[in-house]
Design a binder for these strands. Structure first.
Length: 901
DNA sequence: GATCCGACAGCCC
DNA sequence: GGGCTGTCGGATC
């Protein structure tokens, strides 16, 4: 039950207030089943023998009290052993005007007017069992524990330098840490019945210098692996049998000293019950992975994002089935179905997705059982049918994989408590110890493993693949990852520019082919943009699969500090089907006909990069790459310094314009010389020194072509400078702008490699690139840096469909372009960033752009476009048509040439 | 083999 | 946290 629903229920009971029903209405408002409340009312469940009092085991003590005795009475109740024996969570007293309550677990008090109860509804939320589930903490407990563990880990490694000698000993250390964590949790969360038994026994039975700590731990772990404690000394015999695989393997604990033993005991004193298994595993992972230490589990997926994925993939549908089930038979059948589903995360890390899924599935089962209990005349005890063995995972990191297994056990324990609390009277759970089956998490490289061996799938099996696999663009992949890519895409050409995550897409697509299975990932948005679209998506969509749902790009965030600068999408894939598809944007959910690989509500079009323009437009090229490690570039001061020393150097220096200089209006310069004046340039000492540095830098490059360019260090690596004016388009730009900001420059400027330029231009072309039609296209097909678009000549400009227009139309467009330039000139002090920021854009400039837009759109068709979706759909159709004609045309040309021969 | 381009669990102000 | 650099490998000509 959602908290908003509970609040409404409470308001209802106040609005339709009845003295006789008040306490029963209150319990019902918090989701206590009707059956239980009826039995409580009849007296079966009322454990109080005093007339007028209600004492409901583990839930509530209630009594009507005189106004002047409310406060004193609540104190005496809090100390009444007869009452406390039944462990009621709350004591509630009222005179039906004022309400006084105490949370007997937390000791919190409530003293309010009864009428205002709905404002304080959250006080009683534990009645709904939501406390354990929605443990709200700001990760402070998780963080403290992680830091402390990191301290212990570092010192242990220092004391035991041989642990890194072999893979096996690192693995043993991982298991050791995992066992320690289990003991800390166990002693604080009722898994071990006796509170703090681990820390206390450790403190009492080891010496302060730490010399015997490891033997104590070895013996203890041995004891935890034995069914009977009779061969052990009393202080170990009192521990329970745990095993379940966790203590099965014989390992040797690392050696301790005074300091590490002390830290171990300090760790035991932390409040492990407040730690949240959902994300703790990811944080603790940072302990053994120093690269992640500074940002403590940066890459774990937030609960919110996990829900964004699992809800549309399977949870919404299962809840619908639950709502629709009317009979006990149907409800039992649903439980049967759920208990057979397999959940598989092929990049599970420390298990976030599996844990959240496990909890959600247990919660759904509880709801189904509640409904069954309400329907049955003689409800019987309920056990859970959900098994940890339904949860499968692959994880490359050994420690993370141990953490995933451990966290699933802890989640099971946590959910057993919720189960008993919410199905009170009927919910029964077996004791967690000894640990039984575990999640089926395997350590290994998911790109190399045969997934159907790890999570077997038959024709009948219902399997959901979930997760957040690693993202790595091709230029950041290391050798072994490139080998992985080669292996996965062995029969496919042109895969090398795909992101590493494409392996998980392709393998999942093959896994679910012709099966009753679906998959969804949180993924970098780069596979839905730019070059990668035409490379990846035909491999999926041509296999009879489609995008069932998707969340459009949003920035990656979680509770860890230092979030990655990356934007992600969530994509769900299924075998072709006719049921609805859903496109999500933030909180907007839209039912759509199709979801394209660009995650838009359009048909499936792949726009591939082209080397020449599809439309009748002049060619655009990339600016000039210095490849100089900064030595051919000068800022204002450096330029002034050189010229004041060597006035003759002025002719070797040109203005250098990149995206940043253009957008922010700053100045930079570059050393740009021609063949004729090379010798002269070397005479300038300051220049010669710089050329030498360029030479050294280029010689050190990995790239052969660059090494060769070391012979001519006075030239740019790639010089594209030409005579005449040019249009400049910045490569990168903020997603917030409504127009691509572009500019005119003359030959005194060298455009940088962060720009795209057109030499030999006419004004109307400026109009085409500045138009709304163009930015709609660019925003759809361009690659991205974070959320911001990356303008590319091959992908954005060469692919842009624009009709052939007459000279007269061109002259007409020219006028609108001059208007725009005039409007810009009215604000000489403003930078392009200010001019094109939607919130500060001058009205005149905006108007000039809007007039141009109308004129450009009339080149396509006379009927105006309603919105950008319509514009994009039109452009995609035109693109397809033009590409078809273009390929036909080029084939004809080829055959004609052959005939001539 | 030369040329050209787009990327970036980013990078820097 | 807004907003775009520069070197590199991959693909194409």
């Amino acid at each position: 039950m959602k908290s908003a629903e509970i609040k409404n229920n409470v308001q209802d009971l106040i609005d339709n207030f009845s003295k006789e029903e008040f306490i029963f209405d209150l319990l019902r408002a918090y989701g206590i089943s009707k059956t239980s409340v009826t039995r409580l009312k009849k007296g079966d469940y009322n454990l109080s023998k005093v007339d007028g009092e209600i004492l409901y085991k583990k839930k509530i003590f209630f009594k009507v009290e005189a106004t002047d005795r409310l406060l004193s009475s609540i104190d005496s109740i809090s100390n009444n052993e007869q009452i406390l024996k039944q462990k009621p969570r709350f004591a509630v007293l009222t005179d039906y005007k004022q309400l006084v309550a105490r949370d007997l677990k937390l000791g919190k008090n409530l003293d309010i007017k009864l009428k205002e109860l709905s404002n304080y509804f959250d006080f009683f939320l534990p009645l709904a069992g939501s406390e354990v589930y929605n443990a709200t903490n700001n990760n402070e407990a998780d963080r403290n524990a992680s830091y402390k563990m990191a301290e212990l880990y570092d010192l242990l490694v220092e004391e035991n330098p041989n642990v890194y000698n072999s893979k096996e000993s690192v693995h043993e250390l991982n298991i050791f840490l995992s066992r320690l964590l289990f003991c800390f949790f166990a002693e604080d969360t009722d898994i071990f019945e006796q509170d703090s038994i681990f820390t206390n026994t450790l403190a009492q039975h080891t010496t302060e210098n730490g010399k015997d700590t490891h033997t104590f731990l070895d013996e203890l772990f041995d004891r935890l692996n034995s069914e009977s404690g009779k061969d052990y000394p009393a202080f170990l015999a009192k521990f329970p049998y745990v095993n379940g695989g966790l203590f099965g393997q014989k390992i040797y604990s690392p050696k301790f000293n005074t300091k590490t033993r002390k830290i171990l005991i300090d760790l035991g004193d932390l409040k492990w019950s407040e730690i949240n298994p959902d994300i703790f595993g990811s944080m603790i992972q940072a302990v053994v992975d120093k690269d992640y230490r500074s940002d403590l589990g940066m890459h774990y997926t937030s609960v919110e994002n996990i829900k964004k994925l699992i809800k549309p993939l399977f949870l919404d549908e299962l809840y619908e089935a639950y709502e629709n089930a009317r009979t006990v038979k149907q409800l039992n059948a649903l439980i049967q179905r759920i208990s057979k589903i397999k959940f598989f995360d092929p990049a599970c890390g420390s298990g976030n997705f599996l844990i959240i899924t496990y909890k959600e599935i247990r919660l759904l089962e509880i709801k189904i059982l509640q409904k069954i209990t309400d329907l049955e005349t003689n409800p019987s005890f309920k056990w859970t049918s959900i098994q940890l063995s339904q949860f499968y995972g692959i994880e490359i990191d050994d420690f993370a994989h141990e953490m995933a297994i451990l966290s699933l056990w802890l989640a099971e324990h946590q959910m057993n408590k919720v189960f008993e609390e919410m199905l009170f009277d009927y919910g029964k759970t077996k004791p967690i110890l000894p640990l039984k089956e575990a999640g089926q998490i395997q350590q290994g490289n998911a790109t190399r493993k045969d997934w159907s061996k790890i999570c077997p799938i038959s024709k009948k099996d219902e399997v959901y693949i979930i997760g957040n696999p690693p993202y790595l663009g091709y230029s950041r992949q290391d050798e072994s990852q490139k080998e992985d890519m080669k292996n996965v895409f062995s029969r496919i050409n042109n895969y090398k520019k795909l992101d590493y995550i494409a392996c998980w897409f392709y393998k999942a697509t093959k896994y679910i082919e012709n099966r009753f299975s679906k998959y969804a990932y949180v993924t970098t948005n780069s596979i839905t943009q730019g070059e990668q679209v035409a490379l990846l998506w035909p491999l999926i969509l041509n296999k009879g699969q489609e995008i069932e749902f998707a969340h459009q790009s949003f920035k990656w965030t979680n509770n860890a500090k230092g979030n990655a600068g990356v934007a992600v999408v969530i994509i769900g894939i299924r075998n072709n089907d006719t049921t609805d598809k859903f496109l999500y944007n933030q909180n907007l959910k839209q039912s759509v006909k199709n979801i394209s690989p660009y995650i838009t509500n359009t048909s499936n079009v792949y726009v591939s990069p082209r080397t020449n323009p599809l439309s009748n437009l002049p060619s655009m090229i990339k600016g000039s790459s210095p490849g100089d490690n900064g030595n051919l570039l000068l800022d204002q001061d450096e330029k002034n310094e050189i010229i004041s020393k060597y006035p003759e150097a002025e002719k070797f220096i040109k203005k250098y314009i990149g995206a940043s200089e253009f957008i922010k209006g700053t100045s930079r310069y570059c050393i740009h010389i021609t063949d004729e004046n090379v010798k002269e340039a070397y005479k300038v000492k300051a220049l010669e020194e710089r050329f030498e540095k360029v030479e050294i830098f280029r010689l050190n490059s990995k790239k052969v072509a660059t090494q060769k360019k070391a012979e001519t260090p006075h030239f740019f690596d790639e010089d594209k400078h030409q005579k005449g004016e040019f249009i400049l388009v910045p490569q990168t730009g903020s997603e917030r702008r409504n127009y691509v900001p572009i500019g005119y420059f003359d030959e005194s400027y060298v455009p940088s490699n962060a720009t795209r330029v057109i030499y030999k231009v006419q004004p109307w072309l400026f109009g085409v690139i500045s138009s709304r039609m163009h930015i709609v296209w660019v925003k759809a097909v361009a690659g991205r840096l974070k959320m911001d678009m990356q303008y590319s000549n091959t992908l954005c400009y060469n692919t842009f469909p624009f009709p052939d227009i007459t000279t007269k139309q061109k002259e007409n467009l020219n006028q609108y372009v001059f208007d725009i330039l005039d409007e810009r000139a009215k604000h000489p002090s403003k930078t392009m960033a200010q001019l094109y920021n939607p919130s500060t854009m001058p009205k005149g400039l905006l108007q000039a752009h809007q007039e141009l837009d109308t004129a450009i759109e009339q080149c396509y068709r006379l009927q105006p476009f309603k919105n950008d979706t319509e514009r994009l759909e039109y452009l995609f159709k035109l693109y397809e048509k033009m590409v078809k004609e273009d390929t036909l045309f080029s084939k004809q040309k080829k055959t004609r040439k052959k005939k001539v021969k």
